[in-house]
Each structure stands twice: as structure tokens, then as C-alpha cells.
Design a protein around this nucleic acid. Structure first.
Length: 314
DNA sequence: GTACAGGCAGTAT
DNA sequence: ATACTGCCTGTA
């Protein structure tokens, strides 16, 4: 099944699932299924309901798509948590729209959300993301779930929850590698170990500052700047994080060169869009200052924009 | 066969 | 601080 649900509207048009951040969602027969740690989430589309506008003008018919949310086991009102419905999108829009490119992109992709992921799943997911592509990441995570997760039957179909950290910690490197994760197996174990041993207190990280939490993550083998920023943004509520992958680096090179390459900053972007660790930290700082406390949303819109603009294969 | 894909760690300079 | 290297695995 082709993987093409990038930026598909889930609640037309208020909310969008973005495959760039959530790897274990799939759509089957107009229904979305997703993995949130130990839970399987389900979104079903209901038939369109038609309304006449309040003017009573019969030509002015509005079709509204409604959705039904379920979870296994039951998690009350999970959609509010997972889709961050408390984020004030109009406020975020007004904060970011002083930048012309973002104003344009946000208008077009209005509704793109940052989904809140289960932290342990998020850590493992992005550890798997290094030096590979989205298709491969999805495959790795599906294999891990199938081998180490819990089987759950939903709508007569088998789903697998995400493996617990304890299970991953106890797994042999060779077993992890059998899931196709390659050399990342060592890093997966390192993540699991740091949580099991309480070297990393995952539950406190969202209360810590961006820098404190990031430094804690960076101590773990296999987690560098980019992966740490993804974990912070997608599971630890650090909306000020600005992960820079090669795509974002390309977007910056095309559209934000003047913001970055100033005499004061003394930075020169390389043509191949690769950053040294020092450059990463510096440029990330510059952009976080430029976009402000919702830099993470800016990053998501830029990612959305550049992948669409540069031609992409999913 | 080779290049490449949403990085990272290790080493040398 | 930067440059260079190797790394699993599947696809083009």
C-alpha cells in the first residue's frame, strides 16, 4: 500500500496528520489506526452532514465531516491530548505570520498539527530515524511492534502495541537487529537502558526547561542534536524546539540565508545542506530566536512546504 | 555493480 | 571546530 498520507486532513480542515512526525499511523477503509505506546487509536469518518448556512440561503450548503474517536484500551478524550487541541492555532498563526513564507504556507496548510507522541515510543522512533528514510523507519517500527509488542485485535484485524521499554531493554541485540534496525539496535538498547536504570527520568523531562531536557537526552548514546530536538518537540511539549534535518536545512538555505549569514553570526552554509554539530546548535539558536516560542510549528510548516516544493517520494 | 536515504559517534588534524 | 569515515538495509 503506497505511503501517501502526508498532511492528509483528518478533521477537515482543522487537523492534519503529518507523516513526517508520526510513523505508526495508517489508513484502512476510510479509518485511521495509530499506535500510542500501549494503546491503539482509531479515527473513523462519519458520513458528511449537510447544513444550510444561517442565512437560510438554500444555495449556501455547508458539508461537515464528523469523526468518531476510539482507543484500545479506552483512553478518555485522547484526541484532545494527541492532537494538542488546546494549542491556540490562531495565536500561533499570528505569532508566525510576520514571516512572509510562513504566512503563505500556514494559510495553505492551515490545520497542520504537531501530534503529541508517547515519549518512549517517540525516543525509539527517532533513534531509528538516523540515516534512513521514512519508509524504512516505518518498517523498523512495525517489525519491532510485531516482535515485541502486544497483539490487539481491533475490527477483526491484528494490531500490535509499541514494545515496552522493559521488553526492549531485555531484548538481545541480535533480536533487535532481526527487525531490520541494523546498527541502530545498540542505540535502542541504550535508550531503554537509560530509562530502566533511571539515568533518564522521562516523566520529569516535560517539566524541565528546553536546555535541561535536551542535555539529558544528549547524554544517551545514539541521540544527537536533531533527534533530541524531535523528541523534545513531539513528545515533551517543547514547542520552542526547532529540529533541523536535511530538508529543513535546504529550506533555510533557500529562504533564510539572510537571517543566518550575517556578519554578526559569522556562519556560512555549505552547499550540500549538511551542518556540523557546532553549526547545528548555532543555526538552531538563530532560528529559534527568529521564530520565537512556537518555532516547532514553524519547523513543521517549513518541512511541509519544502517537501512539497522540492518534489518528494514517500 | 553503485548511490542514496529525515544522523551519529569516533578519530585525526 | 571541522573534515572524514563507517554504519544496517532496502530501493532506484
Amino acid at each position: 500500500m503506497p505511503y501517501n498520507f502526508f498532511a492528509e486532513n483528518v478533521f477537515n480542515p482543522e487537523i492534519t496528520i503529518n507523516s513526517g512526525q508520526v510513523f505508526l499511523w495508517e489508513k484502512l477503509d476510510h479509518t485511521w489506526y495509530g499506535t500510542y505506546g500501549n494503546h491503539i487509536l482509531k479515527i473513523s469518518q462519519l458520513p458528511f452532514e449537510q447544513f444550510y448556512s444561517d442565512t437560510g440561503n438554500r444555495d449556501n450548503v455547508i458539508a461537515i465531516r464528523k469523526y468518531h474517536f476510539e482507543s484500545f484500551p479506552e483512553m478518555h478524550n485522547w484526541q484532545n491530548w494527541v492532537f494538542r487541541l488546546d494549542d491556540d492555532i490562531p495565536e500561533i498563526f499570528s505569532c508566525l505570520s510576520s514571516d512572509p513564507l510562513l504566512a503563505k504556507t500556514m494559510s495553505r496548510g492551515y490545520g497542520l498539527r504537531i501530534m503529541r507522541q508517547e515519549p518512549c515510543q517517540c525516543m525509539v522512533s527517532f533513534v531509528c530515524s538516523s540515516n534512513t528514510n521514512i519508509m524504512m523507519i516505518r518498517k523498523m517500527l512495525r517489525n519491532l511492534s510485531k516482535k515485541f509488542g502486544r497483539r490487539l485485535s481491533v475490527d477483526g484485524r491484528d494490531f500490535f502495541t509499541f514494545p515496552s521499554i522493559k521488553t526492549l531493554h531485555e531484548a538481545e541485540i541480535s533480536e533487535l537487529r532481526s527487525c531490520g534496525v541494523g546498527y541502530r539496535a545498540k542505540a535502542i538498547k541504550a535508550v531503554a537502558k537509560s530509562i530502566v536504570n533511571h539515568d533518564l527520568d522521562i516523566s520529569s523531562l516535560s517539566n524541565d526547561s528546553y536546555y535541561e531536557a535536551k542535555n539529558a537526552l544528549l547524554r544517551i548514546y545514539g541521540i544527537g542534536n536533531k533527534i533530541a530536538d524531535c523528541i523534545l518537540l513531539f513528545s515533551l511539549d517543547k514547542l520552542e524546539a526547532f529540529p533541523i534535518d536535511v530538508w529543513i536545512a535546504r529550506a533555510l538555505e533557500r529562504h533564510y540565508k539572510s537571517v543566518i549569514e550575517t556578519d554578526f553570526n559569522n556562519i556560512t552554509l555549505r552547499p550540500d545542506s549538511k551542518l556540523t554539530p557546532f553549526q547545528y546548535v548555532r543555526i538552531s539558536e538563530i532560528m529559534r530566536e527568529y521564530f520565537g516560542r512556537y518555532s516547532g510549528y514553524a519547523q513543521q510548516y517549513l518541512y511541509y512546504y519544502i517537501r512539497e516544493a522540492e518534489g518528494l517520494k514517500w
